[in-house]
Design a protein around this nucleic acid. Sequence first.
DNA 1: AACCGCCTTAAAATGGGCTTAAAATATCGC
DNA 2: GCGATATTTTAAGCCCATTTTAAGGCGGTT
Lengths: 226, 226
Amino acid sequence: MKVLLIEDEPKMVRSLRRGLEEHLIEVDSAGDGLSGQALAERNEYSVIISDVILPGKSGIELLQQLRSKGNCTPVIFLTALDQTDDKVTGFEAGADDYLTKPFEFRELLMRVRALARRPVATYQSSPSLRFAELEMNLDTKEFFREGQKIALTPREFSLMEYFLRHPGRIISKNEISERVWNLNFDTGTNVIEVYVNFLRKKVDRGFDRKLIHTQFKTGYVLREEN
Amino acid sequence: MKVLLIEDEPKMVRSLRRGLEEHLIEVDSAGDGLSGQALAERNEYSVIISDVILPGKSGIELLQQLRSKGNCTPVIFLTALDQTDDKVTGFEAGADDYLTKPFEFRELLMRVRALARRPVATYQSSPSLRFAELEMNLDTKEFFREGQKIALTPREFSLMEYFLRHPGRIISKNEISERVWNLNFDTGTNVIEVYVNFLRKKVDRGFDRKLIHTQFKTGYVLREEN
DNA sequence: AACCGCCTTAAAATGGGCTTAAAATATCGC
DNA sequence: GCGATATTTTAAGCCCATTTTAAGGCGGTT
């Protein structure tokens, strides 16, 4: 099980992270709304635990934007004091649960587990990414061009996913190695080129209109025209 | 929206009923576990609100029996005092939410609405699951492919059941070990692979169209095509 | 033309998943 | 309760898809 923790108070983050990890729950954390949203969109979590008041973007805004993009990961809000008004708007925005600080850790753990137990399929309208005649189903890990299914390995899939999440934008190799390979240093290899090649073979070969383009000395783009 | 309220304290019943009906929520109520269960089985409710301590049959027993019969109506437990131990067992029994008396009515209302918003879990009127030419009878624990009976051990059966309840969705090994083996930690063994192998021998061997597929590094899927 | 970045291909390394058999555990009939 | 049988779990080795490395060629840029 993996949860995303969005909270700006370092002490709280540390204590929750420790508690959750003790119970063998993987934790990613973010200190503000923006990076929280980025993580939530890039990865799939069982549950998101978020403060309501956050720098950058409030928890409620964040939630609404996730939901509007078809992301149905259950969200538990944390709020300081008993601001019941926040509570109301939080629930209205589609929160699945609410805890008022201070709370017992056991309580949080129970609620996280209860939400994680919910059958995923029923609540998540299978999220899919589209661009041109490409279609990617994040749930079933299927990928299509013009309705034709293309088998992708996990790495290929997540690289393609990254392209589809940033269509039309030039993506540098650094960015790719950070966000797809999770390396923030240069390994001095050419894995990325190799994988772009893999994708091209599977996605562009045999089609007239190429979709994956090289921007010399800059990076790659997913684009319709040449 | 219609809720079932199971509570033995008449005062509480009256006040909650009034509050809910003011918000245009229909209310059926029962004063003990047995009649509550009868109502829950006879009618379909959006949410069940139940006291934990009840004459006749405890709320937790009631919940477990509903769940074992395939009834997935969300349940909110009410409990006097802060008996967190009850809370733990309640959540373990599959409760969807928990409120400690005394609570604000608004709080209850929010939680009821949050649960009612969840798309209704597929209701099992006939206790059989089907997919492609597979058929599983949950009552008699029989399992067939193309009408041909296949004998499954209990473990095999419940693994197959889990597949059949999530056709087309990729199911991770973690998910399987949590939901079929009820382990929420990694045992470091390969039981799951062994059992998938058992199932394949019994279900797919000798058939042209395989139904159980591996998604490398991701999990397994029940799917018709390759 | 020379350099550098990118492409392509093939081969090596890695690690996940499969299979099998044996050990441990549970279940059933007596 | 006891032994026999069925089921479940552990363990080990192998296989192969995936990933990474490496090397040589091609092409764009200056």
